[in-house]
Structure formats: structure tokens, C-alpha cells
Nucleic acid binder design. Structure first.
Length: 403
RNA sequence: GUGGAAUUAGCUCAGUCGGUUAGAGCAUCAGGUUGUGGUUCUGAGGGUCGUGGGUUCGAUUCCCAUAUUCCACCCCA
């Protein structure tokens, strides 16, 4: 038997209902905030991700589905959504056009990781990107939008917040931290030794207890922000306070993608296992120019759809449409005809096997139909269709001409 | 990528200290005297016990490999 590739799932029936419900809910919220849909290719030039997400990141370093196509191009299945949207933004010269551009998107992303619950090799994200707004109010808008989406879906969460600083304060802090780490010498774990050069900020949330005890005195980025970053961070906190959005400052929160600066946030759920981040995002003011566009402030976020699916509280399903069946073989053509006209306005499902009324009613019940429409000997003789409303429990004989 | 656990019917799981026809609940299908559902009763179908090797007179059970899923690490959405 041929199976789907490891970490790549089919989404069917009930799961898809949730999936669809999520997409429509999130899209509706995004549109209410003034965002427009954008669709970008699943396949992009490898260089795009190397330059945006960053070569030092795990995503680019070891998780990309990378190959050479028949034309000899070095390409990748997209591991995240922002890079493609930024590429499109620049390619269509919206950076030069100026003004504000707000996009939302959803679709599959690919990362070659070891699968686990909530961690798939093909997974789906819903994301938004906002270009041209430098104000920290836009950062707050992002967080409010995620909060709105999760609220409409009935999902509880904790919000973690941090500021990563900008090109003025981050490099200085990084040097200071690396200096501190070096002062620890060989006392720290192997992972930290490696992180010291790849992503020094990550050592701060090392799980090793010995490392943690050494790091209690480590310099914290939050205490080393420059004036601009500090005041934006303070403003952001006060906006969230005013909107009653609870948050916790997590000075160890580091986004794994190199393009983030200033605001970084993550929504986590305590009910889905160890892969608990359900949404993450932040500001990336420098990315557009890194990709040869005109310097444009930007901020965005992405939600992991599969991680949300089991948390979604679906609205109660209502009975709808028709179930149509025949009591004998001779009635079937008339049933098909009736179904055809019902379908012009409503759902109509036909049972082809003639069977007893009782079994038809069971069948109608099973597919959650509102009406059970049956044709048998009597109906044929009188040119009527017997229809039972499964909610009202009322029944009537309707002339075939009215169908 | 590292360490660990699991894999038996469509689903959730029993079970076999290695020995004839491998069980349950739910689901499916069919009936309960001739046209009334969701919450009844009866019955039936459905499994080469994840896959491939090995040990054995004999393996679903023991051993090895492999695949997948799950847990922790890692990472992130």
C-alpha cells in the first residue's frame, strides 16, 4: 500500500470542516481589519529564504525541501509565508509606490523536521503582513487581530511579549551577551557552546539547570533597549492594557527567523502538548531592504492551523437539505428528478437502493438532513412526494409539480 | 538530528506465560409480519494481529531490521 509521506497528512471530512471554519473565520476578521488576500507560489528560489529567514536559522540550515528543478534552478518549497509575500511586494514595486499595504494569506508550508503531534512536514499557516506602517499601533493591531480570531474560535491562550531591539541596540546587546557567555567558559552545556556563535540569545532559555543558574546574572535585552525601542515597547504595553489583552513579558522569547526586530510575540496554548506555539509574529522593518526593496517598515504574524484545529469549538450543526429515497425500483427515476430541482437551491442527497421507509428515515437522520422525501407506490399514483420535516416531526404530501 | 514508547476489525482497545475457529464496545449492513428516524431487541459481515527477515515441529506472541504514530529533547506555527 502506498502511504502519504511522513509528516504529510490528508485533511478530510470532519477535520476539513474545522479547517474550512477556521479559514473563513480568520479571513473575515482579517478583512474587517482592512487586509486583502494575497497568494504566492509554494515554490521559490532558495536564495529568497536564505536571505530573509537567514542561513543561521534551523529552518534554512536543515529543514528546507530544497532541490534543483529541470531548468537548473535552485528552488525550495516555502518553509514559511513572509518571505514570499515580501518578494511579491517588492516585485510589484509596491515599495516604490509607497502608502500602506496590508495582506493576509493561508496555505501549506514545508519543513523537513522529525514529525510529532503539532509538528508536521507539510502544515498550514494563516498569516498577515502589513507594509508601510512604522507606528507601534500597527504592532498592537496584529496582536489584537490574533486575539480576535482566537476569541471567535473559542480558543484560550497566553500571550508572550518581548522586544528584540533594533539595529541600534541589538548588536551592542549581542556583543555584551556573548562576552558574558564567554566569561562562563566551559561550565555551560554543549548546546550553549554551539548557540554562542549561531544564536547567542537562545542560550537564555536553555533547559539545562546548571546553565540556568549561571545565567541569572546575564544581561537582559529588555534592560538594554535604545530609547526608541524602549518607548515603543512601553506604548505597546499600554495599548494592550487599554484593550484588556493580558500578556506576560518573556525576555527569553526569540523568534527563530533572523528578520525580526523590535516587537516579538507568541500566542501559546497549554492544551496541545509540547508544540504549544499557536501563533507568532513581530516587526521586521529591515527585511524589505535586505531583499533589495526600498526600506519599508513592516510587521506580521502567522498562525499554525493544525495546532488550532483540535481546540476549535465548532458551532452546533443544524439540519439542512433533503434526503431523497424510493420505496420501490419504479419510483427511483422520479426521485432523481425531484432531487435535481431541489439542488437548484438546497442540498439534496439521493439514496439509490429502494428500501423500507424506516430505513430511509434512519438514513436521512444519519446525514443530518432536515427533510426526508420519499416516493413509493401511493405517491406515484397520486403524483405527490411524501416529505417529513425531521425537526418539526411534521409530514405532508406535496404535488410533484411543486418540486 | 538524539533518547524512549506504541502499532491487533472502519474507530477505541482487550488477549494469547509460543499451540486448533484472535475477542469486546462503537460503527456498518440485514431483520423485528406487509409505509414512520434519532435513545430499543436479534443477527450478520469485517482482521494474512504495521511490513520484512530470523529462532522454532509451530510465531500475532520471542529476537533483529524497517515503516509510521506518539512522548521528551531540539525547533517552531
Amino acid at each position: 500500500m502506498i502511504q502519504s509521506l511522513r509528516g504529510m497528512n490528508d485533511i478530510l471530512s470532519e477535520d476539513y470542516e474545522r479547517f474550512e471554519f477556521f479559514i473563513s473565520t480568520a479571513s473575515t476578521v482579517a478583512k474587517r481589519y482592512g487586509f486583502h488576500y494575497i497568494e504566492t507560489p509554494l515554490l521559490e528560489e532558495t536564495a529568497l529564504f536564505k536571505r530573509s529567514v537567514g542561513e543561521s536559522s534551523d529552518i534554512v540550515g536543515k529543514e528546507m525541501y530544497q532541490f534543483t528543478d529541470k531548468g537548473g534552478n535552485d528552488v525550495c518549497l516555502r518553509p514559511e509565508g513572509t518571505a514570499g509575500v515580501v518578494r511579491a511586494f517588492i516585485q510589484h514595486k509596491l515599495d516604490k509606490k509607497g502608502g500602506i499595504h496590508r495582506f493576509y494569506y493561508h496555505g501549506p508550508m514545508f519543513r523537513y523536521e522529525r514529525p510529532q503531534k503539532g509538528r508536521l512536514r507539510e502544515f498550514h499557516q494563516f498569516g498577515v503582513e502589513s507594509f508601510g506602517v512604522a507606528s507601534v499601533y500597527e504592532d498592537a493591531l496584529m496582536i489584537m487581530m490574533v486575539a480576535d480570531i482566537l476569541k471567535e474560535l473559542g480558543i484560550g491562550y497566553r500571550l508572550k511579549l518581548n522586544s528584540l531591539g533594533d539595529q541600534h541596540c541589538m548588536p551592542a546587546y549581542r556583543d555584551k551577551l556573548v562576552g558574558f557567555i564567554e566569561s562562563c567558559g566551559d561550565a555551560i552545556c554543549e548546546d550553549c557552546q554551539r548557540r554562542k556563535s549561531t544564536n547567542p540569545i537562545r542560550v537564555l532559555d536553555c533547559k539545562n539547570e546548571k546553565c540556568q543558574s549561571l545565567y541569572t546574572d546575564a544581561p537582559k535585552l529588555i534592560n538594554n533597549l535604545c530609547e526608541g525601542c524602549q518607548s515603543d515597547f512601553d506604548t505597546l504595553k499600554s495599548i494592550l492594557d487599554q484593550h484588556a489583552i493580558a500578556y506576560e513579558i518573556d525576555t527569553n522569547l526569540v523568534r527563530g527567523l533572523d528578520y525580526y526586530s523590535k516587537t516579538a510575540f507568541e500566542f501559546v496554548s497549554d492544551n496541545i502538548g509540547s508544540q504549544s506555539a499557536i501563533a507568532g509574529g513581530g516587526r521586521y522593518d529591515r527585511l524589505i531592504e535586505f531583499l533589495d526593496g526600498k526600506s519599508t517598515p513592516a510587521v506580521g504574524f502567522a498562525l499554525g492551523i493544525e495546532r488550532l484545529l483540535e481546540l476549535i469549538v465548532m458551532p452546533e450543526s443544524v439540519r439542512e437539505g433533503y434526503y431523497l429515497g424510493a420505496l420501490d425500483e419504479e419510483s427511483l427515476p422520479l426521485v432523481l428528478k425531484a432531487a435535481e430541482s431541489v439542488r437548484r437551491t438546497q442540498k439534496a442527497v439521493v439514496e439509490y437502493d429502494p428500501k423500507k421507509l424506516q430505513n430511509h428515515l434512519k438514513g436521512a437522520d444519519r446525514i443530518n438532513a432536515r427533510y426526508c422525501a420519499i416516493i413509493g407506490e401511493n405517491e406515484r399514483a397520486n403524483h405527490t412526494i411524501w416529505v417529513k420535516d425531521l425537526v418539526e416531526k411534521s409530514e405532508s404530501l406535496i404535488p410533484m409539480s411543486q418540486f
